[in-house]
């Protein structure tokens, strides 16, 4: 059973308004049958300090990633995880999180790899919910385990591997990192620990559109008109484009993936989750330094 969409005016401008709910909508629908609210944060303890009543926590690192290989859980692992969180295949899942929904968008993207149909983001995320003084609780929700089918992951439509990106060169690429990461002045986000990328710079031809340009001051997504101005007018994306977005490990680019795929309606958008921590360490892949996107080298394939 799925819930109806949040029909407010701002959302109706987006290509897929059913992918967003407002804090007001969520507040009214808490406790409704068929709805599961998921918190997904960068800070692994944040949920425990207080969360939306009834929400369950999913940690990107310990629950969505494979423990050994740099990859996501497989179909069986995902089914076990969903069952343990009380999520059914037909549940409406609303995800929210810290840092303007980076990890929430990342979790939503992973749900999409498994084809979970009704998965939505809370516009504004955790910060807006808290700023509005809405209810938080430290009570653990009572979860009734469900039976979630084993669905194999389907990476190809929305996930790009390094080889895919090499073949993609020449088509639109969006680098969503900060300006200094793009130019190669630094290899990690300001104020973040060094994650060990050997080289600085960007993938040749990538346009620099830092993820935050899609977010307003309160963490909500910018309006359709504002997003069109950034991604179509400035970055030059056109209907029908095949687009790849990347960042450092794939979390900020999940946010941009969500914007391009669901808010602006681009059908072919892939997130390159290997991102700079793979590309910046790989042998013999082309890199461009400085502010210019650069040219796609001939014969760049390995």
């Amino acid at each position: 059973m799925t819930l109806g969409p949040d029909t407010q005016d701002k959302f109706s401008e987006y290509a897929h308004p059913e992918r967003l709910v407002s804090t007001g909508w969520l507040s009214e629908h808490l406790g409704t049958d068929g709805l599961v609210v998921v918190e997904s944060d960068e800070d692994v303890l944040l949920y425990e300090t207080g969360h939306v009543p009834g929400s369950v926590k999913i940690d990107w690192h310990t629950e969505l990633n494979d423990e050994v290989t740099r990859d996501y859980v497989d179909g069986e692992g995902f089914a076990r995880l969903m069952a343990s969180k009380g999520i059914s295949r037909d549940s409406t899942v609303v995800i929210y999180g810290d840092k303007s929904n980076w990890w929430a968008a990342y979790a939503l993207w992973v749900f999409t790899l498994f084809g979970h149909e009704d998965v939505r983001l809370l516009d504004g995320g955790r910060d807006l919910w808290v700023a509005e003084g809405r209810d938080l609780t430290t009570d653990k929700p009572e979860v009734t385990a469900t039976d979630y089918p084993v669905v194999e992951r389907d990476d190809a439509p929305i996930r790009a591997y390094l080889g895919d990106v090499l073949e993609h060169l020449g088509k639109p690429l969006i680098d969503v990192r900060s300006g200094d990461e793009y130019t190669g002045a630094r290899t990690t986000m300001p104020a973040y620990p060094e994650e060990g990328a050997l080289r600085g710079g960007h993938i040749p031809t990538a346009a620099s559109v830092p993820w935050a340009r899609a977010a307003a001051e309160d963490g909500t997504f910018r309006t359709r008109a504002e997003l069109d101005a950034v991604y179509r007018d400035e970055a030059g994306l056109k209907d029908g484009d095949d687009v790849v977005a990347y960042c450092r490990i794939g979390e900020r680019s999940s946010h941009t993936w969500f914007v391009l795929r669901h808010l602006l309606g681009f059908e072919n958008v892939r997130n390159y989750d290997g991102s700079w921590t793979e590309w910046g360490n790989a042998v013999r892949v082309p890199i461009v330094r400085g502010t210019e996107p650069g040219e796609a080298p001939a014969g760049a394939r390995r």
Partner: peptide, 9 residues
Amino acid sequence: PPEAPTTRG
């Protein structure tokens, strides 16, 4: 800040 409980811990 309170929104950084791991760091505070």
